[in-house]
Design a protein around this nucleic acid. Sequence first.
RNA 1: CGGGGCGUGGCGCAGUAGGUAGCGCGCGUCGUUCGGGACGACGAGGUCGGAGGUUCGAGUCCUCUCGCCCCGACCA
Length: 478
Amino acid sequence: MSTNKLPTQAEDFPAWYVEVVKRAELAEHGPAKGSMIIKPHGYAIWELTQRALDDRFKATGHENLYFPLLIPMSLLEREADHVEGFAPQVAVVTHGGGEKLEEPLAIRPTSEAIIWSTYKRWIQSYRDLPLLYNQWANVLRWEMRTRLFLRTSEFLWQEGHTAHATADEAMAETLQMLEVYRQVAEDVLAIPVHMGRKSPGERFPGAVETYCIEGLMRDAKALQCGTSHFLGQNFAKAYDVTFLNADGEQEHAWATSWGFSTRMVGGTIMAHGDDAGLRLPPAAAPIQVAIVPIARTDEERVEVLEVAGKLRADLAAAGVRVRLDDRDQHRPGYKFAEWELKGVPVRIELGPRDVAAGRVVMASRLGGEKEEVALADVASGMAERLASVQKALYDDALAYREANTHEIASFDAFAAGVEEQGGFWVGAWCGDGACEAEIATKTKATIRFLPIEPTDPGGPCVHCGKPGVDVAHWARAY
RNA sequence: CGGGGCGUGGCGCAGUAGGUAGCGCGCGUCGUUCGGGACGACGAGGUCGGAGGUUCGAGUCCUCUCGCCCCGACCA
């Protein structure tokens, strides 16, 4: 690991980000363009996120299944908007077994096509509905520009695909999963998010409505953190999925899909990190507590490690993810810096003086003074301590977002403000896609979201002056 | 696709007029160290992205080629 200083967030945020990802051993570039090797510390963050999501999926009645990576091109091409939206990003397998394939196979950029072509066989009657399924998978999108975690050509995610008998039920499902995403983003990753609706221009290809959770990163740029789509009957029509309702009539099924990806590991880094590196929310921290033993002599080492080992066992028994850093090739100062870089929320220093006094020295990744805590109280008080770190990170991010959210007083102020300080800019929008596009061209800011229910802004569009029909949050985004 | 950059020990880099490859970190052994990124000694490790060419001789010059990264347009 390099011991040079990190670039600071203020001088070069993108460089800071890449360096943190690499030095904290979250991930590195794979050999193929835009690909990523996720290392154990990064993957463990993803695993914790996965578990939090999966538990909630199960609790809301969903089951996991798995569909194939390869999709025959003809299948993918059935839904017009969907094809048009994804065509430029699809990688295609043309050869296999040393020969050119009869029909090229697309590597899934998302799985609506293969899933809905299959649902056709699974759905006959309203009694077969709803289908509440989710899959954990990798997908591939040929991106022009990539960034570790935030945008890689291949990424890991979950994609839920549900089928319903009525539009109302499908819409309720769409919003329910959006709420699940909000909970995981806020309660687990400690990233405050807005729940909203995408403008037609930002909608998922093939969706009737796209809802999203949207967060603000430490550089005042927005990040789309998860999306939940109400697909209407578009896919059922494209893939001919019909069912007989209770009145004996054929109907097309109603669909939703929703996804949350490894991008959020990047979001967690950018929402909380500081100039010393990562700051992980305890709920998503692979290691919540690192114990650094300190000793000079062999006798001290034996004595300290014995106490440290017992402390580790006590913490583990209390349900804490704890690491005893007993590596002897590094001195304590090195370890302090490393665990800070890796974002471990709480560090415990344990040396001969502490052993003698029956206490430890505790340091929070959030800063402040080191604190002496009686050995006997460490394990019992840890859950509460971690919870307070979790809350503090969330509160900090929320305060940052509030401080970087602005009402639009005039278009010029908006354009200048978004350029100089970033953040969310809130104001009235006329609902016209052409106007939206012009704003994007002029400011590089896009509508990140509209309220879930259209809301009268009570004034004219901030750009064109036509009557406003909705309240928009604009920002520059990843 | 447009603009820029880079391919040389594991990582980051240097490389003289073309003369047979070096530095820092890391790695191994030993010793001293250990409460905020330790130090010393010794040691291991490279057909310089690939192919062709010029030359007595190429990391270095020429031609071709492959790949990756960064910045913009596309996107979770």
